[in-house]
């Protein structure tokens, strides 16, 4: 394996780099094992003064610990409680979430789509993995998988079944393929048995998948269904 890599490296270094397609694969000059590849690139960039390890730690901490589906859940709970908030959210989600402090990278243009008994919304990015980071954080592995990207647009009901969800015939499915810089958040239906619950209690029922459209909000324990 390592020998093959050294040979490839020698070959690449003799070739002129082609600017359009990566026919010469500069990345093949780095170790093939992904963790080592990242480490090698990080080291080169650090030694050249192009990245600051403290900045990397800050980025990782932000997406690991600070920004995640709890932000989206907060928005959903507010929309369930306050019709005025919900109307404003449906009208101009970007402004509304900005006021809550949930604006940022990969959430610059937000649209919220509302589930009803008549229509279920579901979000995918078939071309890459576009996802509303400020509201949901970094996408889960399945969202970025070939299977989800390939199939969500063609057979959403089969995909939903793999999440344990079956929709009645009376519900149409609308799949949003995020092909531009607009990011979509699904507003799930408020579960039965949540009358009188406050914002915190409601937010705790809102799952990440329910805001992508591959799940429903949790029904509170003990509620009749």
């Amino acid at each position: 394996m390592l020998n093959k890599w050294w040979t490839e490296r020698a070959r690449l270094r003799q070739h002129r780099f082609m600017p359009h397609d990566h026919s010469d694969h500069p990345h093949a000059l780095l170790p093939p094992e992904p963790a080592l590849r990242v480490k090698a690139l990080e080291t080169i960039l650090r030694d050249k003064g192009l990245i600051d390890p403290a900045a990397l730690e800050e980025i990782i901490d932000t997406y690991q610990n600070k920004i995640g589906p709890q932000n989206g859940a907060r928005v959903v709970a507010k929309a369930w409680l306050d019709d005025g908030f919900r109307a404003a959210l449906m009208q101009d989600a970007t402004s509304v979430v900005r006021d809550l402090g949930f604006y940022g990278r990969q959430g610059e243009h937000m649209v919220v789509v509302e589930n009803t008994p008549d229509r279920h919304n579901m979000v995918v990015c078939t071309l890459c993995s576009c996802y509303p980071w400020p509201l949901l954080g970094i996408p889960p592995g399945w969202y970025k998988s070939d299977a989800y990207r390939a199939r969500a647009v063609r057979e959403p009901r089969k995909v939903l079944a793999e999440f344990g969800m079956t929709l009645p015939d009376s519900t149409a499915v609308r799949v949003w393929d995020s092909t531009a810089e607009v990011r979509y958040l699904v507003l799930p239906m408020r579960p039965e048995g949540t009358e009188g619950m406050d914002e915190d209690a409601l937010a705790a029922l809102v799952t990440r998948d329910s805001m992508i459209g591959t799940g429903l909000a949790h029904v509170p324990k003990g509620a009749a269904t």
Binding site: T126, W142, A147, R151, V153, E162
Partner: peptide
Amino acid sequence: VHDMGGRFGDGPVVPDAE
């Protein structure tokens, strides 16, 4: 190759835990 919307043959989606 990235333009895979509608492609057949990828198998089931495997959800991970919340």
